[in-house]
């Protein structure tokens, strides 16, 4: 067996790229589905009637009070037990999406409630209906407010994707472990995996700051 890290890296290049691809797809799916769900959760937390608000509150508190790994394991084991043939990838993404939705729901709720009351009053005073006021005045302001926390949640999703290795999904971390089991270069390859995750998350952070700058209002 060739004994330098670079040689081993070259041999394993497709496995690693494959792993990155799976990690990215897990993260993207979880973020997209979770965010869409999360917006509805957030809207319900602010505007829905008392019963629905309570249900949503319970939902977010329970999901946020549970470790992600528990959500992943539960989703994996429970789905197969109740007959839903999801498989590890879908079960894992489902768990992450639900986790993401509870965080995004809180973020959206916070952003909407942070808008000064005067904005709603001014919108009412010129005769806008609630729907008009929400789409033209409230939501654009809330979205700007959400952005930093949402970018943070996106990075958390990438980190959480590593948990799917525990249920056997062949994302980057599991692939790294496979490679190491062949060539025993754990130091080098865990370092590499760490480096790759760092680059992805750091990139997300930087991109978020860029978008924040671009959408900032001139003052």
């Amino acid at each position: 067996m060739s004994h330098t890290f670079l040689e081993q890296l070259w041999i394993a290049r497709y496995v690693i790229l494959n792993g990155i691809g799976v990690t990215v797809s897990i993260s993207l799916l979880a973020i997209l589905v979770g965010s869409v769900l999360g917006v509805f959760v957030g809207l319900a937390l602010v505007y829905a009637g008392a019963i629905l608000r309570l249900v949503m509150r319970a939902y977010t508190d329970i999901i946020r009070g549970t470790p992600v790994l528990v959500l992943v394991l539960a989703s994996y084991y429970v789905s197969s037990a109740v007959g839903l043939d999801l498989g590890p990838f879908s079960a894992g993404v489902l768990a992450l999406a639900i986790f993401c939705s509870s965080h995004v729901g809180e973020i959206v709720r916070g952003a909407l409630q942070a808008i000064p009351r005067g904005q709603t009053e001014a919108a009412k005073a010129i005769g806008l209906t609630f729907t008009q006021a929400f789409t033209s005045v409230l939501w654009p302001q809330a979205m700007r407010q959400c952005l930093p926390a949402w970018v943070n949640t996106a990075a958390e999703m990438v980190k959480a994707s590593t948990l799917l290795s525990v249920i056997g999904v062949a994302e980057l971390l599991l692939r790294t472990q496979e490679i190491i089991s062949r060539n025993f270069m754990s130091l080098q390859f865990y370092f590499l995996a760490g480096g790759l995750y760092f680059i992805i998350n750091f990139g997300i952070e930087r991109f978020g700051k860029y978008v924040e700058r671009k959408t900032a209002l001139p003052s």
Binding site: A155, V158, T162, S165, L173, L187, Y190, F191, G194, Y197
Partner: peptide, 23 residues
């Protein structure tokens, strides 16, 4: 702070438990 915050905990756990013994 920047490096640790951008790394998944699981990677750190596996690194310390499986890779550090090599050092």
């Amino acid at each position: 702070v920047t490096i640790i915050r951008n790394l998944p905990i699981l990677v750190l756990v596996l690194f310390v438990f499986f890779a550090l013994p090599q050092l």
